[in-house]
Structures are given as C-alpha cells and as structure tokens.
Amino acid sequence: MSKIIFNIQQINQLEENPNVASVSERSIQYTAEFKVKAVRENMDGKGPQQIFTEAGFDLTVIGKEKAKSSLKRWRRTYRTDGEDGLLNNKRGKTLGGGRPKKDESMERRLAKAEARIKYLTAENELLKKLEKLEGQAKRTN
C-alpha cells in the first residue's frame, strides 16, 4: 500500500478523472479500460509517467513511483492472464473472504445490525432460561 495519504481536495481531483474507478485516502483503483490501454501504450514504448500524465493524472499528487509500480504490476498480470486478467477484477475473490465492501448501503448495514441484535437478544433469553432450569435442578437435588 502507498505511503501517500490523499487529502479531500486530492481525492475529489482524482475522482473527476474518468480513468479512476474509486479513490480512498490511501489508494486509487483504476478502470480496467485504463489499465489495458496503459499496458498497450507501455508496450509500444511510452513511459509510465507519460502515460499517466496524458491520462490526466497529476504526478505530484499520485507520485511518480505510483505510476511505475502500478504499470509494472499491470504488465505482470497482462503477461500471466492476458487482457482478461486486467478486465476482470479478481482481487479478494479467490477465497471468498476479506473485508466487506465499503459501498454497502446504510439500509443493508442497519438491517444486518438489527438482525444481530435480535439474535443476541434471543441468545440472552435462552441463557436466562437455562440458568433458571439449572437453579431449579440444584434445589431439587
């Protein structure tokens, strides 16, 4: 992960770029189309900094190394999986685990929280009944 932390203005600037899929304060996700185009242009002889600058990125914001490292990673993916490797975002999908997606709606998060509360409440009631039954059993013995 990059050591660069983007501020609000930089995030807004990056989000306006059509080659950006999403931005957080620490990372940029580029569109698959941009990745393919960048790899092809690089294979035709263009350097990473030129490719990113022509695509509308300010290298003082994202960093010159970000352009180099991203393109290096995309070229590796292109060599192993071809164009499909860049078009299909496989990150985090091999094992099915990982962190939840951040674009989860508030309604869905609320519904999950309410379901968890309902489950925990039922569990507490069950434990109370069990304690009561154990107390009765001790008194009869």
Rank of each mutant, 00 (worst) to 15 (best):
N12W: 05
E125M: 06
I117R: 10
M1W: 04
G47C: 07
K68I: 11
S105R: 04
K118G: 02
T53S: 14
R139M: 13
N141K: 15
S27C: 11
A32S: 14
K118M: 04
D103T: 07
A67Q: 02
L95D: 09
M106I: 07
P100R: 10
G96F: 07
F57T: 02
G85C: 01
L110P: 01
L127P: 04
T31N: 01
N12T: 14
A137C: 13
N19S: 13
L71K: 00
E114M: 10
G98C: 07
D81R: 15
T140S: 15
E131K: 15
K72C: 04
I28F: 00
E16K: 15
A111I: 01
L110N: 08
I117N: 06
E114Q: 10
N42E: 07
I5K: 13
K72I: 00
Q13C: 12
V61C: 01
T53C: 05
Y78V: 05
T80K: 14
T31Q: 00
K64P: 01
K64R: 12
D84V: 10
K64C: 02
L86K: 00
E107L: 09
G85W: 00
T94C: 07
T80F: 10
D58Q: 06
R79L: 08
G96Y: 08
G85Y: 02
R109H: 03
K118Y: 03
E41Q: 15
G63L: 03
Q136S: 13
E83S: 03
A21R: 12
Q13Y: 15
G98M: 10
V61I: 15
A67F: 03
N42G: 10
E104T: 13
L86N: 02
R40V: 11
S22Q: 11
A111Y: 07
S105W: 02
I117A: 09
S70I: 00
T60R: 14
N141C: 09
Q13A: 15
S70K: 03
F57A: 01
Q10D: 03
R99Y: 08
Q136M: 14
K37G: 03
G135W: 11
R79Y: 06
L127C: 05
Q49G: 02
T53R: 13
E134N: 14
L95W: 09
N7I: 12
G98A: 08
L110R: 11
I51W: 01
E41S: 11
L59S: 08
R26M: 11
E104P: 03
Q50R: 15
N7S: 05
L120E: 08
N7F: 02
K102H: 09
T94F: 09
G63Q: 04
G47V: 03
E41H: 10
R79T: 04
E54S: 06
E15M: 13
K102R: 13
E25G: 07
L110S: 08
T60V: 13
G96I: 09
E41D: 15
Q9F: 12
L14S: 00
Q9W: 11
T77V: 15
L120R: 09
A115I: 00
R76T: 12
K72L: 04
L120G: 02
G85I: 05
R40A: 06
T53L: 12
S22E: 10
R99N: 04
E65D: 13
K101P: 06
